[in-house]
Design a binder for these strands. Structure first.
Length: 264
DNA sequence: ATGTCACAGTCCCTGTGA
């Protein structure tokens, strides 16, 4: 089973790139962020032609998250259910896997009210993760807008005093992980400096001036089944790319004869 | 010290957010 997360920076502007990528990569489940679409305008038919059911939680100009699945969609949850003002989290059960597509607030700057909103939002996500059904394999993926460590930054010195790297943001991310989730890409590749986002400005991609801020957080059952995780850097190349690349995780199917992977 | 992109409104340029 292959699961991917991708901040597409407008699903309308990126539709050709997204359908092309789906056709070639054939993931089973895809979490999209920053669709910048309303539910009415979301191009569900283009995805269904490729064999994907989809669900979208959008608000139009900003934000917007979606789940695409070739293995079914059930039990959809739009938002935290506590009075969201912005469409940033969407949950669904796909083939026995509970997934959430997350677009964490940017924060803008450390002295901006949006930064406090970001920290509070991450705490709400922690509560959601802590309250999960322990019998369902669980994955939270998306654009976290937090680089977990300095190793996830092209130049930590250039980012001192900025968002995405501050101690409170990293602590908020660690609090989510402390519910029993692991950063899959880093877990499987402790020494690879892979980035998932590069600014459009300044030739950042060409110079590999990036950050790893797009994450797949998985529970212990999925960590045991994981066989691969990587950033599909090629998707950042070419015509009209998103400024983010997809992050992929691959998992063995549950083997009922393996006591480490069987569902109880 | 942004060599950028996308969106919507003020609508073929500008402000905003990233």
């Amino acid at each position: 089973m292959k699961v991917a997360t991708w901040n597409v920076n407008s699903v309308a502007a990126r539709l050709g790139r997204v359908t092309e990528w789906l056709s070639v990569s054939r993931p089973d489940v895809v979490l999209l962020q920053e669709t910048k679409s309303t539910d009415d305008r979301f191009p569900a038919s283009a995805f269904s032609e490729l064999g994907y059911e989809s669900v979208h939680y959008g608000q139009g100009q900003w934000n917007g998250v979606a789940v695409l699945s070739a293995i079914g969609i059930a039990d959809v949850q739009r938002g935290f259910g506590d009075g969201d003002l912005e469409a940033r989290v969407l949950g669904a059960t796909c083939g026995g896997l509970r997934v959430y597509s997350c677009y964490v607030p940017n924060g803008r700057s450390l002295d901006d009210p949006h930064y406090q909103y970001k920290l509070a939002w991450l705490d709400r996500l922690r509560n959601l993760a802590a309250a999960r059904d322990p019998l369902l394999p669980f994955l939270v993926g998306g654009d976290f807008n937090v680089a977990p460590s300095d190793f996830d930054c092209w130049d930590p010195a250039a980012l001192v005093g900025a968002t995405h790297v501050s101690a409170p943001e990293r602590a908020a991310l660690e609090a989510i992980e402390s519910t029993g989730l692991v950063d899959l890409t880093r877990s499987l590749h402790p020494h690879e400096q892979w980035f998932s986002w590069w600014d459009y400005r300044g030739g950042a991609f060409h110079r590999n001036h990036g950050l790893r801020i797009d994450l797949l957080l998985v529970d212990e059952s999925l960590r045991r089944r994981a066989t691969a995780s990587y950033v599909d850097r090629d998707a950042r190349k070419g015509e009209k790319p998103s400024d983010h690349a997809p992050v992929v995780g691959e998992f063995r199917e549950v083997d009922e004869w393996d006591p480490h992977t069987s569902i109880q």
